[in-house]
Amino acid sequence: MIRFNDVSKYFPTRFGPKYVLKNINLDIPDDRDVAILGKNGAGKSTLLRLLGGVDFPNEGRIQSNRFISWPLALTSGFQGTLTGRENVRFICRIHGVKSNRATEEFVKDFSELGGSFELPVSSYSSGMKSKYSFAVSMAFDFDTYLIDEIMAVGDAGFKKKCENAIGNKRENSNIILVSHNMNLLRRQCNAAILLAYGRAEFYESVEQAIFRYECL
């Protein structure tokens, strides 16, 4: 269970604080795959960053006893001057994974990068980058995966592979997915959070949430 207790988040601007989320009370159950819906700037990515522990609420608390992945976006924290392999090693080290080699080979296979895996990450195209960062996160066993728009990129074959990989993980973990692709959300999720007007609402049914979102 991930629990939001009265969580507020604002960004200081020169017009004063701009609230993105205000007094959110929310429970995200462990056994549901949650879609996050909302217009641009509604706070979808901010919510994901709060969940990922890389940003902090200005008020309130987020409680959880799960291993949550880093927010998986296109610009994930890879150092451009290091090679794909070196970046994987770094992430293994900070997660306390001792079997570097197995993880490296998994990422190399899954991302279909081949020789480019030994080249600096800054030389990757955006499609390669998204494949790469998706593969890296799949190499670790988290309880909850946070995915931000990343599955929209990449070729058709890879998209299918991603969805299969997530399907395999589903046995003992769940995903929280941000996307503007409604069909993807329908396929992947069985619950939704709609962000609008600084509030968040939990929906048991994705269809209902999408209907509400399209009426906004």
């Binding site: 291993f67 150092q79 001057t81 290091l82 070196e86 090693r89 770094f90 080290r93 900070i94 997660h95 306390g96 670790f140 066993d141 988290f142 309880d143």
Partner: peptide, 29 residues
């Protein structure tokens, strides 16, 4: 994933940054 103590997390992270800095600082020359 297995739970680690705060100290061992920090030790792992500092070591990882150490290696990363050593590689990226000089490999460009």
């Amino acid at each position: 994933m297995k739970a680690r103590s705060a100290f061992s997390i920090q030790r792992d992270v500092v070591f990882a940054i150490f290696v990363r800095e050593m590689i990226s600082r000089f490999s460009t020359y």
